[in-house]
Amino acid sequence: MTYDEVITCLYDLQDPDKVVFKEKKFGVVSHNSLGIYHKELKIIAKEIGRDNELALQLFESGIYEARLLCSKIYDPKELTSDLMEYWVVTFENWEICDSFCMGLFAKSSLALEKIHEWTSRRAEFEKRAGFATMAAYCMADKKSDNDLFEKFLPLLIREANDERLYVKKAVNWALRSIGKRNVDLNQRALDTAHKILTFDTKAANWIAKDAIRKLEAENVNILDYPRALYR
């Protein structure tokens, strides 16, 4: 598909009611949005395949859904630090932040570098990007030993008092993702949650209690990564 064909397709799918619904239901406040759901964008992305040049054009269009589509068709192996920095500062809500972090950044060789950089940022969605990439990296990297993921735990402790909604949710998400890799990291994540629980803030209290409840649940899905050791 050419750039013009993709843009025409997006405008054909536009639905202003969905823009309003996503804002009211999910807190997704977006500029220049057409109102298209991810499931529809995934169909378009599958038809396009990997196309870095088109992805960059779509991002520069400024259309919200075109930027979401960019995150689905850019090849993570071709990411550069400059490009990741160029994109991360534009994130305006959790949806576009997570789309780039889960589908693209966590699969990049630069993921670990950006996790450590972004989790110390001040801007809400840049910091969220650090923790969202961390959470997704726990699922994307199926071979690394526990030491790598244990190094994430001090970052979670350091930022557990951030009261901003989309930061504390991402910290919680990352903590739970670490705890789902294997039984040993499950215990390390629980130990970390109990440490966070001693902090005297609402954010830390919520992060810890929710993580403990979910990581101790009978139906918690432990993934046994790396499987060479745990299976």
Score class of each variant (00 low, 15 high):
G27R: 06
G27P: 04
V28A: 14
V29L: 13
H31P: 07
S33R: 15
G35S: 08
H38P: 09
K39Q: 11
K39N: 15
L41S: 06
L41Q: 12
I43P: 03
I43Y: 04
K46V: 03
E47C: 00
G49R: 02
R50N: 07
D51S: 07
N52Q: 02
N52P: 05
E53Y: 09
E60R: 15
E60G: 00
I63Q: 07
I63F: 01
A66K: 01
R67Q: 09
R67A: 03
L69H: 03
L69D: 00
L69V: 00
C70H: 13
C70N: 11
K72G: 10
I73F: 02
I73R: 06
P76A: 09
K77R: 14
K77C: 09
T80L: 02
T80F: 02
L83H: 07
L83N: 06
E85S: 13
E85I: 07
Y86W: 14
W87H: 07
V88L: 01
V89P: 01
E92C: 11
E92F: 03
N93L: 06
I96N: 01
C97D: 10
S99L: 07
S99C: 11
C101E: 00
M102G: 11
G103N: 15
G103L: 08
G103D: 14
L104D: 10
F105A: 10
A106S: 15
K107D: 13
S108R: 08
S109V: 12
L110K: 01
L110Y: 00
L112G: 05
E113Y: 11
K114M: 14
K114Y: 12
K114A: 08
I115V: 12
I115C: 01
E117G: 03
W118D: 05
T119G: 02
S120W: 12
R122Q: 15
A123K: 14
A123L: 12
E124K: 08
F125G: 05
E126P: 01
E126Y: 05
K127C: 03
A129Q: 06
G130H: 06
F131Y: 03
F131C: 05
A132Q: 04
M134Y: 06
A135W: 06
Y137C: 01
C138P: 09
M139C: 14
M139I: 15
A140P: 08
D141V: 06
K142C: 07
K142T: 14
K143Y: 11
K143V: 13
S144F: 12
D145H: 12
N146I: 07
N146W: 07
D147P: 13
L148N: 12
L148W: 10
L148H: 11
F149E: 09
L153A: 08
L153D: 04
R158V: 09
N161E: 13
